[in-house]
Design a protein around this nucleic acid. Structure first.
Lengths: 130, 130
DNA sequence: TGAGTAATTCACATATTCATATTATGTATT
DNA sequence: AATACATAATATGAATATGTGAATTACTCA
């Protein structure tokens, strides 16, 4: 089989990539791969920490359906403006949201679809009743 | 269209569920749905907090390919036994991993495939080189 | 320019998380 | 039973995260 990907990052998919492959390890993982894995894990955990907050999760969820102003988010979350702003700044730092100024108000939208990809699964696990 | 799902939990899929629907909101979200959403967000953020830790993420990643003993994980992570044990206890509390005793050693495995589902996406975003 | 609005930033108090060290528990061996 | 080993549980302090209110910036309009 194709061995060209076995050392790409210490992880090797167990199934074809087409069906959203599971992250499964080789049994004989080497030190080099371990380092790559640790680096990947750090980036991933930073991302996950950014979204693993009740308020930020709801912000991202609301932004998934289109851009919103800070005031709108403030109302949607029933939270203080300063708190919302700080949560947005955290998401901004992580590059997950992008501000757009229009006169007095600032509108936020999702920078890319990374949050959506995660939230699809989160939605399935926690929001859809089984 | 089908309106029977519009109030299930404050979220409404924008596409057929078959293709992993996006969590998108109705424009006229009501207070009741907001409460449900907040409750879902809290459960989801607890789950995400549990996995958004470099060490715990790597543990889950290793467990994805089969059960491992604490000592094995200790070596795989190059971490102290106490640290690994504490991270495992956190994952145990959250119900993500399950211990199985065999003599002196205790083997851990994933309780269900929730972590795997998230990690599939995380793997795609952070471990696969594009 | 001055007042009003939207959003950010700051400073503080509190709460949570984390790593380490220590102690406790359960199991196998003798 | 006594010992050794693998793992778990607890305690402590340091670091980090969070919400709040006050001060500040950026913009609009009269």
């Amino acid at each position: 089989m194709d061995t060209s990907v076995s050392h790409q990052d210490g992880l090797t998919p167990s199934e074809p990539a087409s069906t959203s492959s599971l992250p499964v390890f080789d049994k004989d993982i080497c030190a080099e791969d371990m380092d790559k894995m640790a680096a990947n894990a750090m980036r991933a955990s930073n991302f996950l920490k950014a979204i693993s907050h009740e308020g930020r999760l709801m912000i991202l969820c609301h932004l998934a359906s289109g851009e919103k102003s800070v005031t709108e988010l403030e109302e949607l979350l029933s939270a203080r403006q300063a708190a919302v702003s700080q949560q947005l700044s955290r998401l901004r730092l992580e590059g997950l949201v992008t501000p757009r100024r229009d006169g007095k108000t600032i509108y936020y939208s999702l920078t890319d679809d990374r949050p959506k990809q995660i939230m699809e699964v989160v939605y399935d696990l926690f929001c859809r009743q089984k």
